[in-house]
Write a protein that binds this DNA or RNA. Structure first.
Lengths: 232, 232
DNA sequence: CGCAGCCTTGACAAATGTCAACAAACGTGG
DNA sequence: CCACGTTTGTTGACATTTGTCAAGGCTGCG
């Protein structure tokens, strides 16, 4: 793969502290690939042959069961996905597809496991990353089990507002139908939920959201650091 | 702590491969404590001072928000809990309480982190454990987002039947109100859900469940290894 | 025996999903 | 650049699922 990509991969927490020789060894077997939108990169149940790194574009992690489908997470540059399956050498639990044109690095899983054994800094970074992932899912679980769909939407909007800088108006970074799936509701229900937040100062124009008074919305949403904060 | 407990702790995957000296160092600062039922051991948001190991009894991991409460997992002997918080040195995301009289080993988190840095076998075991935990939560997430409560109950019963040896009748290992919370439903809804499974051969007598024809129930429940299998 | 907690049941309310229709936005090929 | 068809979002009417409240039965324990 082109060395031009090395620095941005190296900058990831996962790879930042490892020995240079090991980093190079890891990327020696890796390659970069460009994918058009809506391509299914991996299917749940398949063996985890590669650790994936998104360089550009965005990836939807989703799952199907009994003719139903749900989005579990979105991966944006620059970060890795399906690390747990790679480490455990177990089948993928989620499918992945490109949402837009995306550039992905594929690192053979066996190389990841080999270097993991050889480089304790890398091992430590993997632990931190996995612990982070675990805690993120636990938060999502709490969001799902403790809140109604209206509350989930309200808190999502507050998170997204913060994430985009805190301005009174901001853009959704999802197609609404995907947002609905992420929030575990139908598109119709999401549409009505937006209206349900109007009393709390939320107005919607396409993918542009305006929050008239953040405190007002927070009073309803009751955001909680142990559910809504990205870090920690 | 009494050395009598060492072997059963040592037998855990997490501790099995580490150097003896490190194992002893880890347990030097640890102590065992007995708790009566219904004691809240830790509260979400508190700093993660100890890694916990359940030697006997059982522990409910749960979370509260806005006057609501939900059970996220049950920990049974012999296993650890809240490893991720310990590793990240971050606040607990879940509260924990004893369900029955329980004996717990408390290992200072800073010792865990220190030995983690010193013992690569231990580090590897932690990675495996975390990856396992992560995948379990993802499965729970899929269960929750892709299935109705009736389907979740049906699949839970199939898992529990398998877990208890596969006999046509078996015992629930939960109080029904807790099972309801784990499955993300109200006790009333659970009560009715049991009746809803009657057409598929499920009969209930107290905490004793009978499944007349497993294939019949499976036809409805559509269990899937990527959601319902404990391993992998 | 009597109390407390759990489970169940019924009646009802609220939340959410489904289906159908239509409008708006988007992309493609002419 | 426009016309067309496809996809997405919205809305209404309705069904289903799930939750809430209240009451009563059962069980276990002091």
């Amino acid at each position: 793969m082109p060395e031009a990509h090395y620095p941005e991969i190296r900058a990831l927490n996962l790879f930042a502290e490892m020995a240079e020789a090991n980093f190079l060894a890891l990327l020696r077997g890796a390659y970069v690939q460009n994918f058009p939108p809506q391509i299914e990169l991996i299917g749940e149940g398949e063996p985890s042959d590669f650790l994936h790194v998104v360089l550009s574009g965005s990836i939807d992690l989703f799952s199907r069961w009994n003719d139903r489908e749900t989005s579990l997470a979105t991966v944006r540059p620059v970060s890795t996905f399906i690390l747990a399956a790679t480490i455990k050498n177990a089948p993928y639990l989620m499918s992945a597809r490109t949402l837009e044109k995306s550039r992905i690095v594929l690192i053979p899983s066996k190389d990841v496991r080999a270097i993991f054994d050889a480089d304790s800094n890398f091992a430590r970074a993997i632990v931190t990353e996995l612990a982070q992932c675990y805690r993120s899912v636990i938060k999502a679980q709490k969001d799902l089990k403790l809140r109604t769909s209206l509350e989930r939407l309200a808190n999502y909007l507050l998170r997204q507002q913060k994430h985009t800088g805190g301005g009174a108006t901001f853009e959704l970074d999802f197609e609404k139908r995907r947002l609905a799936s992420v929030l575990s509701m139908t598109p119709e229900n999401l549409s009505r939920a937006f209206k349900g937040l109007k009393p709390y100062g939320v107005t919607v124009d396409g993918t542009t959201i305006a929050i008239a008074d953040r405190a007002d919305l927070e009073h309803f949403a009751k955001p909680n650091p142990l559910i809504d904060d990205v870090t920690s």
